[in-house]
Design a protein around this nucleic acid. Structure first.
Length: 484
DNA sequence: AAAAAAC
Protein backbone atom coordinates (compact mmCIF):
# COMPACT_ATOMS: atom_id res chain seq x y z
CA UNK A 1 0.00 0.00 0.00
CA UNK A 2 1.28 3.42 0.79
CA UNK A 3 5.00 3.27 1.01
CA UNK A 4 6.34 6.12 3.02
CA UNK A 5 9.31 7.63 1.34
CA UNK A 6 11.39 9.06 4.09
CA UNK A 7 12.63 12.53 3.58
CA UNK A 8 16.31 13.16 3.62
CA UNK A 9 15.82 16.87 3.62
CA UNK A 10 16.15 19.03 6.66
CA UNK A 11 13.02 19.41 8.71
CA UNK A 12 13.43 23.11 9.15
CA UNK A 13 11.08 25.27 7.20
CA UNK A 14 11.10 28.81 6.02
CA UNK A 15 8.25 31.07 6.82
CA UNK A 16 7.58 34.09 4.69
CA UNK A 17 6.63 36.80 5.09
CA UNK A 18 7.87 38.71 6.97
CA UNK A 19 10.82 37.12 8.69
CA UNK A 20 12.48 33.75 8.40
CA UNK A 21 11.82 31.17 11.05
CA UNK A 22 10.87 27.53 11.14
CA UNK A 23 7.43 26.16 11.76
CA UNK A 24 8.70 24.45 14.86
CA UNK A 25 10.13 27.69 16.13
CA UNK A 26 6.80 29.39 15.82
CA UNK A 27 5.27 27.20 18.46
CA UNK A 28 8.05 28.13 20.82
CA UNK A 29 7.29 31.80 20.56
CA UNK A 30 6.25 33.19 23.89
CA UNK A 31 3.49 35.20 22.36
CA UNK A 32 1.57 32.53 20.57
CA UNK A 33 -0.95 35.17 19.65
CA UNK A 34 1.61 36.50 17.25
CA UNK A 35 0.96 33.65 14.86
CA UNK A 36 -2.75 34.01 15.11
CA UNK A 37 -4.09 34.10 11.59
CA UNK A 38 -0.63 34.63 10.22
CA UNK A 39 0.14 32.86 7.02
CA UNK A 40 2.86 30.32 7.41
CA UNK A 41 4.44 29.38 4.16
CA UNK A 42 6.50 26.26 4.44
CA UNK A 43 9.04 26.11 1.70
CA UNK A 44 11.80 23.62 1.10
CA UNK A 45 14.23 23.31 -1.71
CA UNK A 46 13.60 20.05 -3.41
CA UNK A 47 16.18 17.35 -2.86
CA UNK A 48 17.16 15.13 -5.74
CA UNK A 49 15.07 12.02 -5.82
CA UNK A 50 16.88 8.73 -5.69
CA UNK A 51 15.78 5.54 -7.42
CA UNK A 52 13.31 7.33 -9.63
CA UNK A 53 11.58 8.84 -6.67
CA UNK A 54 11.31 12.49 -5.97
CA UNK A 55 10.43 13.85 -2.60
CA UNK A 56 6.72 13.35 -2.01
CA UNK A 57 6.54 16.07 0.58
CA UNK A 58 4.52 19.12 -0.10
CA UNK A 59 6.89 21.88 -0.93
CA UNK A 60 4.54 24.76 -0.41
CA UNK A 61 1.73 24.66 2.06
CA UNK A 62 0.16 27.73 3.47
CA UNK A 63 -1.16 27.05 6.93
CA UNK A 64 -3.43 29.35 8.88
CA UNK A 65 -4.08 28.58 12.50
CA UNK A 66 -7.04 30.04 14.27
CA UNK A 67 -7.12 30.90 17.94
CA UNK A 68 -4.04 30.82 20.12
CA UNK A 69 -3.30 27.11 20.33
CA UNK A 70 0.41 26.62 19.69
CA UNK A 71 1.43 23.76 17.44
CA UNK A 72 4.83 22.20 17.05
CA UNK A 73 5.63 20.40 13.85
CA UNK A 74 6.10 16.68 14.54
CA UNK A 75 9.57 15.58 13.47
CA UNK A 76 9.03 12.08 14.80
CA UNK A 77 5.92 10.02 15.48
CA UNK A 78 7.08 9.86 19.10
CA UNK A 79 6.31 13.57 19.36
CA UNK A 80 2.62 12.86 18.98
CA UNK A 81 1.80 11.03 22.20
CA UNK A 82 0.52 7.98 20.36
CA UNK A 83 -0.17 4.67 22.03
CA UNK A 84 2.59 2.03 21.76
CA UNK A 85 0.21 -0.16 19.76
CA UNK A 86 -0.36 2.58 17.21
CA UNK A 87 3.35 3.34 16.94
CA UNK A 88 3.96 -0.34 16.30
CA UNK A 89 1.40 -0.23 13.49
CA UNK A 90 3.16 2.75 11.94
CA UNK A 91 6.62 1.21 12.05
CA UNK A 92 5.95 -2.49 11.61
CA UNK A 93 2.87 -2.59 9.38
CA UNK A 94 3.07 0.70 7.49
CA UNK A 95 6.87 0.68 7.47
CA UNK A 96 6.94 4.42 8.12
CA UNK A 97 10.07 6.01 9.47
CA UNK A 98 9.07 9.57 10.14
CA UNK A 99 6.14 11.87 9.40
CA UNK A 100 5.93 13.32 5.90
CA UNK A 101 5.55 17.08 5.60
CA UNK A 102 1.76 17.12 5.60
CA UNK A 103 1.73 14.67 8.50
CA UNK A 104 4.24 16.73 10.45
CA UNK A 105 2.11 19.83 10.13
CA UNK A 106 -1.42 18.46 10.31
CA UNK A 107 -1.12 15.75 12.96
CA UNK A 108 -0.32 18.15 15.80
CA UNK A 109 -3.30 20.25 14.72
CA UNK A 110 -5.52 17.18 14.78
CA UNK A 111 -4.23 15.68 18.02
CA UNK A 112 -3.71 18.72 20.25
CA UNK A 113 -6.58 19.80 22.50
CA UNK A 114 -8.94 21.57 22.08
CA UNK A 115 -9.11 19.46 18.92
CA UNK A 116 -9.93 22.19 16.47
CA UNK A 117 -11.49 21.51 13.12
CA UNK A 118 -9.13 21.34 10.19
CA UNK A 119 -9.40 22.02 6.48
CA UNK A 120 -6.34 20.49 4.87
CA UNK A 121 -5.24 20.57 1.27
CA UNK A 122 -2.17 18.70 0.09
CA UNK A 123 -0.87 17.28 -3.14
CA UNK A 124 -2.10 14.03 -4.64
CA UNK A 125 -0.16 11.07 -3.34
CA UNK A 126 1.35 12.92 -0.42
CA UNK A 127 -0.21 10.86 2.33
CA UNK A 128 -3.47 12.54 3.31
CA UNK A 129 -5.12 9.21 4.04
CA UNK A 130 -2.55 8.26 6.61
CA UNK A 131 -3.10 11.63 8.30
CA UNK A 132 -6.76 11.24 8.94
CA UNK A 133 -6.59 7.50 9.60
CA UNK A 134 -3.98 8.17 12.26
CA UNK A 135 -6.16 10.99 13.54
CA UNK A 136 -9.14 8.70 13.91
CA UNK A 137 -7.19 5.85 15.49
CA UNK A 138 -5.52 8.03 18.07
CA UNK A 139 -8.63 9.91 19.09
CA UNK A 140 -10.72 6.78 19.66
CA UNK A 141 -10.94 5.50 23.24
CA UNK A 142 -10.53 1.71 22.89
CA UNK A 143 -12.50 1.15 26.10
CA UNK A 144 -15.66 2.78 24.82
CA UNK A 145 -17.49 0.24 22.68
CA UNK A 146 -19.43 2.76 20.62
CA UNK A 147 -18.92 4.61 17.34
CA UNK A 148 -16.42 7.44 17.91
CA UNK A 149 -15.00 8.17 14.47
CA UNK A 150 -16.66 8.51 11.09
CA UNK A 151 -15.09 8.87 7.66
CA UNK A 152 -17.28 9.77 4.71
CA UNK A 153 -16.04 9.11 1.17
CA UNK A 154 -17.47 9.78 -2.29
CA UNK A 155 -17.16 6.24 -3.64
CA UNK A 156 -17.34 2.65 -2.54
CA UNK A 157 -13.82 2.00 -3.85
CA UNK A 158 -12.33 4.79 -1.79
CA UNK A 159 -14.09 3.69 1.38
CA UNK A 160 -12.72 0.16 0.97
CA UNK A 161 -9.24 1.48 0.29
CA UNK A 162 -9.30 3.73 3.34
CA UNK A 163 -10.51 0.82 5.46
CA UNK A 164 -7.53 -1.23 4.30
CA UNK A 165 -5.20 1.50 5.54
CA UNK A 166 -7.06 1.70 8.84
CA UNK A 167 -6.89 -2.05 9.42
CA UNK A 168 -3.19 -2.09 8.67
CA UNK A 169 -2.23 0.91 10.77
CA UNK A 170 -4.54 -0.07 13.61
CA UNK A 171 -3.65 -3.75 13.60
CA UNK A 172 -2.27 -3.80 17.14
CA UNK A 173 -4.75 -1.36 18.70
CA UNK A 174 -7.77 -3.64 19.01
CA UNK A 175 -9.93 -0.79 17.73
CA UNK A 176 -13.00 -2.10 15.91
CA UNK A 177 -14.20 -0.85 12.55
CA UNK A 178 -16.89 -1.32 9.97
CA UNK A 179 -17.65 -0.29 6.42
CA UNK A 180 -20.85 1.64 5.81
CA UNK A 181 -21.53 0.54 2.26
CA UNK A 182 -24.41 -1.12 0.45
CA UNK A 183 -23.82 -4.85 1.00
CA UNK A 184 -23.30 -7.25 -1.87
CA UNK A 185 -25.83 -10.05 -2.38
CA UNK A 186 -23.95 -12.55 -0.28
CA UNK A 187 -23.88 -10.32 2.80
CA UNK A 188 -27.29 -8.73 2.51
CA UNK A 189 -29.22 -8.29 5.74
CA UNK A 190 -32.35 -6.13 5.84
CA UNK A 191 -31.56 -2.96 7.75
CA UNK A 192 -34.40 -3.57 10.21
CA UNK A 193 -32.83 -6.86 11.27
CA UNK A 194 -29.41 -5.39 11.84
CA UNK A 195 -28.23 -4.84 15.39
CA UNK A 196 -27.09 -1.29 16.23
CA UNK A 197 -23.56 -0.48 15.12
CA UNK A 198 -20.96 -0.87 17.85
CA UNK A 199 -17.78 -0.51 15.79
CA UNK A 200 -15.57 2.34 16.96
CA UNK A 201 -14.50 3.60 13.54
CA UNK A 202 -16.83 3.62 10.57
CA UNK A 203 -15.87 4.38 6.99
CA UNK A 204 -18.40 4.60 4.20
CA UNK A 205 -20.46 6.49 1.67
CA UNK A 206 -23.15 9.09 2.45
CA UNK A 207 -26.17 7.09 1.36
CA UNK A 208 -25.52 4.24 3.73
CA UNK A 209 -24.78 6.59 6.63
CA UNK A 210 -28.08 8.34 6.02
CA UNK A 211 -29.87 5.03 5.91
CA UNK A 212 -28.33 3.88 9.17
CA UNK A 213 -29.21 7.16 10.83
CA UNK A 214 -32.73 7.04 9.52
CA UNK A 215 -33.20 3.57 11.01
CA UNK A 216 -31.54 4.60 14.25
CA UNK A 217 -28.82 2.01 13.92
CA UNK A 218 -25.96 4.44 14.41
CA UNK A 219 -25.51 6.18 17.75
CA UNK A 220 -23.77 9.55 17.48
CA UNK A 221 -23.47 10.64 21.10
CA UNK A 222 -19.88 9.44 21.53
CA UNK A 223 -18.66 10.79 18.21
CA UNK A 224 -15.27 12.48 18.58
CA UNK A 225 -14.02 12.90 15.04
CA UNK A 226 -15.71 13.25 11.67
CA UNK A 227 -13.63 13.06 8.49
CA UNK A 228 -14.62 14.02 4.98
CA UNK A 229 -12.29 12.50 2.43
CA UNK A 230 -12.28 14.36 -0.91
CA UNK A 231 -14.01 17.04 1.09
CA UNK A 232 -14.35 19.57 -1.71
CA UNK A 233 -16.45 17.11 -3.64
CA UNK A 234 -18.37 16.07 -0.55
CA UNK A 235 -19.30 19.72 0.03
CA UNK A 236 -19.74 20.84 -3.57
CA UNK A 237 -23.18 21.76 -4.80
CA UNK A 238 -22.68 19.40 -7.72
CA UNK A 239 -21.42 16.75 -5.34
CA UNK A 240 -22.76 15.56 -2.03
CA UNK A 241 -23.38 18.90 -0.31
CA UNK A 242 -26.89 18.26 0.98
CA UNK A 243 -26.19 14.81 2.33
CA UNK A 244 -22.93 15.86 3.88
CA UNK A 245 -24.53 18.76 5.68
CA UNK A 246 -27.37 16.63 6.91
CA UNK A 247 -24.91 14.17 8.45
CA UNK A 248 -22.81 17.02 9.88
CA UNK A 249 -25.83 18.58 11.53
CA UNK A 250 -26.99 15.29 12.99
CA UNK A 251 -23.58 14.75 14.54
CA UNK A 252 -23.25 18.33 15.76
CA UNK A 253 -26.59 17.97 17.48
CA UNK A 254 -25.74 14.69 19.20
CA UNK A 255 -22.11 15.42 19.99
CA UNK A 256 -21.45 19.14 19.91
CA UNK A 257 -17.69 19.01 20.38
CA UNK A 258 -17.02 16.53 17.60
CA UNK A 259 -13.94 17.47 15.61
CA UNK A 260 -14.33 17.81 11.85
CA UNK A 261 -11.52 17.21 9.35
CA UNK A 262 -11.84 18.13 5.69
CA UNK A 263 -9.17 16.65 3.43
CA UNK A 264 -8.63 17.00 -0.31
CA UNK A 265 -6.03 17.77 -2.95
CA UNK A 266 -8.34 20.39 -4.44
CA UNK A 267 -10.50 23.17 -3.04
CA UNK A 268 -11.78 25.62 -5.61
CA UNK A 269 -12.46 29.09 -4.24
CA UNK A 270 -16.19 28.61 -3.83
CA UNK A 271 -15.86 25.37 -1.92
CA UNK A 272 -12.99 26.80 0.10
CA UNK A 273 -15.15 29.67 1.33
CA UNK A 274 -18.12 27.42 1.88
CA UNK A 275 -16.07 24.85 3.79
CA UNK A 276 -14.67 27.22 6.33
CA UNK A 277 -18.04 28.90 6.71
CA UNK A 278 -20.01 25.70 7.20
CA UNK A 279 -17.50 24.13 9.55
CA UNK A 280 -17.67 27.26 11.67
CA UNK A 281 -21.44 27.60 11.55
CA UNK A 282 -22.37 24.05 12.37
CA UNK A 283 -19.63 23.40 14.87
CA UNK A 284 -19.28 26.94 16.22
CA UNK A 285 -15.53 27.05 15.90
CA UNK A 286 -13.05 28.55 13.49
CA UNK A 287 -11.15 25.79 11.71
CA UNK A 288 -7.41 25.59 11.23
CA UNK A 289 -6.59 25.63 7.54
CA UNK A 290 -3.80 24.66 5.22
CA UNK A 291 -3.83 25.30 1.51
CA UNK A 292 -1.66 24.94 -1.57
CA UNK A 293 -1.70 27.47 -4.42
CA UNK A 294 -3.25 26.02 -7.56
CA UNK A 295 -0.10 26.76 -9.56
CA UNK A 296 1.84 24.62 -7.10
CA UNK A 297 -0.48 21.65 -7.28
CA UNK A 298 0.77 19.95 -10.45
CA UNK A 299 2.95 16.98 -9.71
CA UNK A 300 6.42 17.65 -11.06
CA UNK A 301 7.21 13.96 -11.32
CA UNK A 302 4.34 13.42 -13.76
CA UNK A 303 4.84 14.59 -17.35
CA UNK A 304 1.76 15.83 -19.14
CA UNK A 305 1.30 15.45 -22.90
CA UNK A 306 -1.32 16.23 -25.51
CA UNK A 307 -1.94 14.27 -28.68
CA UNK A 308 -3.89 15.68 -31.61
CA UNK A 309 -5.97 12.92 -33.17
CA UNK A 310 -7.76 13.43 -36.50
CA UNK A 311 -10.95 11.70 -35.35
CA UNK A 312 -12.54 9.60 -32.62
CA UNK A 313 -11.45 6.34 -34.20
CA UNK A 314 -7.81 7.36 -34.12
CA UNK A 315 -8.13 7.93 -30.38
CA UNK A 316 -8.93 4.23 -30.09
CA UNK A 317 -5.93 3.47 -32.30
CA UNK A 318 -3.68 5.44 -29.95
CA UNK A 319 -4.87 3.27 -27.07
CA UNK A 320 -4.36 0.14 -29.15
CA UNK A 321 -1.06 0.87 -30.89
CA UNK A 322 0.71 2.98 -28.31
CA UNK A 323 -0.70 2.52 -24.85
CA UNK A 324 -1.52 -1.17 -24.95
CA UNK A 325 1.70 -2.04 -26.75
CA UNK A 326 4.11 0.24 -24.93
CA UNK A 327 2.23 0.11 -21.68
CA UNK A 328 3.47 -3.39 -20.95
CA UNK A 329 6.95 -2.08 -20.30
CA UNK A 330 5.81 0.94 -18.39
CA UNK A 331 3.42 -0.26 -15.71
CA UNK A 332 -0.31 -0.10 -15.28
CA UNK A 333 -2.53 2.43 -17.00
CA UNK A 334 -5.92 4.02 -16.40
CA UNK A 335 -7.92 5.34 -19.34
CA UNK A 336 -10.48 7.94 -18.28
CA UNK A 337 -13.64 8.46 -20.31
CA UNK A 338 -16.53 10.86 -19.88
CA UNK A 339 -19.45 8.52 -19.35
CA UNK A 340 -20.54 5.00 -18.55
CA UNK A 341 -21.58 4.62 -22.13
CA UNK A 342 -18.24 5.78 -23.47
CA UNK A 343 -16.60 3.29 -21.13
CA UNK A 344 -18.52 0.33 -22.54
CA UNK A 345 -17.98 1.51 -26.11
CA UNK A 346 -14.23 1.74 -25.70
CA UNK A 347 -14.16 -1.54 -23.82
CA UNK A 348 -16.02 -3.36 -26.57
CA UNK A 349 -13.90 -1.82 -29.30
CA UNK A 350 -10.68 -2.98 -27.66
CA UNK A 351 -11.99 -6.45 -26.87
CA UNK A 352 -13.04 -6.78 -30.49
CA UNK A 353 -9.48 -5.95 -31.50
CA UNK A 354 -8.33 -8.81 -29.32
CA UNK A 355 -7.04 -6.94 -26.27
CA UNK A 356 -7.67 -7.71 -22.65
CA UNK A 357 -8.90 -4.69 -20.77
CA UNK A 358 -11.23 -4.27 -17.83
CA UNK A 359 -13.61 -1.44 -17.12
CA UNK A 360 -15.03 0.09 -13.99
CA UNK A 361 -18.04 2.37 -13.83
CA UNK A 362 -20.97 2.94 -11.56
CA UNK A 363 -23.52 0.94 -13.52
CA UNK A 364 -21.73 -2.33 -12.85
CA UNK A 365 -22.99 -4.42 -9.99
CA UNK A 366 -21.13 -4.34 -6.70
CA UNK A 367 -19.61 -7.79 -7.08
CA UNK A 368 -18.08 -6.94 -10.46
CA UNK A 369 -16.77 -3.59 -9.21
CA UNK A 370 -15.05 -5.21 -6.26
CA UNK A 371 -13.59 -7.94 -8.45
CA UNK A 372 -12.23 -5.60 -11.12
CA UNK A 373 -10.56 -3.36 -8.55
CA UNK A 374 -9.10 -6.37 -6.76
CA UNK A 375 -7.64 -7.75 -9.99
CA UNK A 376 -6.17 -4.40 -10.93
CA UNK A 377 -4.64 -3.88 -7.49
CA UNK A 378 -3.12 -7.33 -7.61
CA UNK A 379 -1.56 -6.45 -10.96
CA UNK A 380 -3.52 -9.10 -12.82
CA UNK A 381 -4.80 -6.52 -15.29
CA UNK A 382 -2.72 -3.91 -17.03
CA UNK A 383 -5.11 -1.38 -18.49
CA UNK A 384 -8.24 -0.20 -16.74
CA UNK A 385 -10.90 1.90 -18.43
CA UNK A 386 -12.70 4.08 -15.92
CA UNK A 387 -15.22 6.85 -15.51
CA UNK A 388 -14.58 9.49 -12.89
CA UNK A 389 -15.67 7.00 -10.25
CA UNK A 390 -11.93 6.35 -10.04
CA UNK A 391 -10.71 9.92 -10.59
CA UNK A 392 -10.23 10.64 -6.92
CA UNK A 393 -8.14 8.98 -4.29
CA UNK A 394 -7.55 5.63 -5.95
CA UNK A 395 -4.11 4.52 -4.84
CA UNK A 396 -2.22 2.01 -6.91
CA UNK A 397 1.49 2.68 -7.00
CA UNK A 398 2.01 0.71 -10.22
CA UNK A 399 -0.09 3.17 -12.22
CA UNK A 400 2.40 5.16 -14.28
CA UNK A 401 0.14 6.12 -17.16
CA UNK A 402 -3.06 8.11 -17.19
CA UNK A 403 -4.88 8.64 -20.46
CA UNK A 404 -7.60 11.22 -20.80
CA UNK A 405 -9.54 9.64 -23.62
CA UNK A 406 -12.06 12.40 -22.93
CA UNK A 407 -11.06 15.60 -21.18
CA UNK A 408 -12.97 16.36 -17.99
CA UNK A 409 -15.53 19.11 -18.51
CA UNK A 410 -18.07 20.76 -16.27
CA UNK A 411 -21.57 19.41 -16.37
CA UNK A 412 -23.80 21.81 -18.26
CA UNK A 413 -20.81 23.95 -19.30
CA UNK A 414 -19.14 21.64 -21.73
CA UNK A 415 -16.67 24.19 -23.07
CA UNK A 416 -15.24 24.66 -19.60
CA UNK A 417 -12.72 22.21 -18.14
CA UNK A 418 -13.22 20.62 -14.76
CA UNK A 419 -9.80 21.57 -13.43
CA UNK A 420 -10.25 19.75 -10.17
CA UNK A 421 -11.17 16.46 -11.80
CA UNK A 422 -8.27 16.91 -14.21
CA UNK A 423 -5.83 17.27 -11.35
CA UNK A 424 -7.27 14.27 -9.53
CA UNK A 425 -7.00 12.10 -12.63
CA UNK A 426 -3.37 13.13 -13.12
CA UNK A 427 -2.79 12.25 -9.49
CA UNK A 428 -3.59 8.58 -10.15
CA UNK A 429 -0.10 8.39 -11.64
CA UNK A 430 2.98 9.37 -9.73
CA UNK A 431 1.91 8.22 -6.31
CA UNK A 432 4.32 9.32 -3.58
CA UNK A 433 6.62 11.11 -5.97
CA UNK A 434 6.92 8.34 -8.51
CA UNK A 435 7.40 9.12 -12.17
CA UNK A 436 4.40 9.11 -14.46
CA UNK A 437 2.96 10.34 -17.73
CA UNK A 438 -0.41 11.67 -18.79
CA UNK A 439 -1.63 11.62 -22.38
CA UNK A 440 -4.52 13.91 -23.23
CA UNK A 441 -6.18 12.81 -26.47
CA UNK A 442 -7.57 15.80 -28.35
CA UNK A 443 -9.81 15.58 -31.36
CA UNK A 444 -12.26 18.45 -31.57
CA UNK A 445 -11.40 22.15 -31.68
CA UNK A 446 -13.16 22.48 -28.36
CA UNK A 447 -10.73 19.94 -26.90
CA UNK A 448 -7.90 22.30 -27.77
CA UNK A 449 -9.59 25.20 -26.07
CA UNK A 450 -10.28 23.16 -22.96
CA UNK A 451 -6.70 21.93 -22.88
CA UNK A 452 -5.45 25.54 -23.14
CA UNK A 453 -7.62 26.55 -20.22
CA UNK A 454 -6.31 23.69 -18.10
CA UNK A 455 -2.75 24.64 -19.01
CA UNK A 456 -3.35 28.22 -17.98
CA UNK A 457 -5.19 27.34 -14.80
CA UNK A 458 -2.34 25.31 -13.36
CA UNK A 459 0.36 27.22 -15.23
CA UNK A 460 1.72 23.85 -16.27
CA UNK A 461 3.54 22.74 -19.39
CA UNK A 462 1.71 20.27 -21.58
CA UNK A 463 3.95 19.04 -24.35
CA UNK A 464 2.66 17.96 -27.74
CA UNK A 465 3.28 14.41 -28.94
CA UNK A 466 3.16 14.29 -32.74
CA UNK A 467 2.21 12.78 -34.98
CA UNK A 468 -0.51 10.82 -33.22
CA UNK A 469 0.44 7.54 -34.90
CA UNK A 470 4.18 7.65 -34.36
CA UNK A 471 5.60 4.97 -32.12
CA UNK A 472 8.84 6.92 -31.87
CA UNK A 473 7.06 10.01 -30.64
CA UNK A 474 5.38 8.06 -27.84
CA UNK A 475 8.56 6.25 -26.90
CA UNK A 476 10.34 9.55 -26.74
CA UNK A 477 7.61 10.99 -24.54
CA UNK A 478 7.82 8.06 -22.16
CA UNK A 479 11.58 8.38 -22.08
CA UNK A 480 11.31 12.06 -21.21
CA UNK A 481 8.91 11.11 -18.45
CA UNK A 482 11.54 8.77 -17.08
CA UNK A 483 9.48 5.68 -17.75
CA UNK A 484 11.58 4.02 -20.45
C1' DA B 1 -23.24 15.84 -23.52
C1' DA B 2 -22.07 13.42 -16.31
C1' DA B 3 -20.39 10.69 -12.22
C1' DA B 4 -20.94 9.56 -7.83
C1' DA B 5 -24.68 7.22 -3.67
C1' DA B 6 -29.09 5.03 -2.76
C1' DC B 7 -33.85 5.26 -2.34
Amino acid sequence: MADNVSSSSSTSATITPPETKSWADVADEEAAAEIKLDSLVVDESKPQGALGLTNPDDSTIEAVTSGDTPYTSAKRFEDLNLSPELLKGLYVEMKFEQPSKIQAISLPMILTPPYKNLIAQAHNGSGKTTCFVLGMLSRVDPNVREPQALCICPTRELAIQNMEVLLKMGKFTGITSELALPPDQANYIPIQKRPPITAQVIIGTPGTFSKWLQHKKLGLSKMKILVFDEADHMLAMSGFRDESIRIMKAIAKASSNCQVLLFSATFDDDVKDFSSKIAGEIFKREPNQMFVKKEELSLESVKQYKVHCPDELSKIMVIKDQILELGEKVGQAIVFVKSRNAASMLHQALVKLGYEVTTIQGALNIEDRDKIIKEFKEGLTQVLIATDVLARGFDQSQVNLVINFDLPVQYGRYSEPDNEVYLHRVGRAGRFGRRGAVFNLLCLDSDDMIMDKIEKHFNSQITEVAPWNSREAFEDALRRAGLL
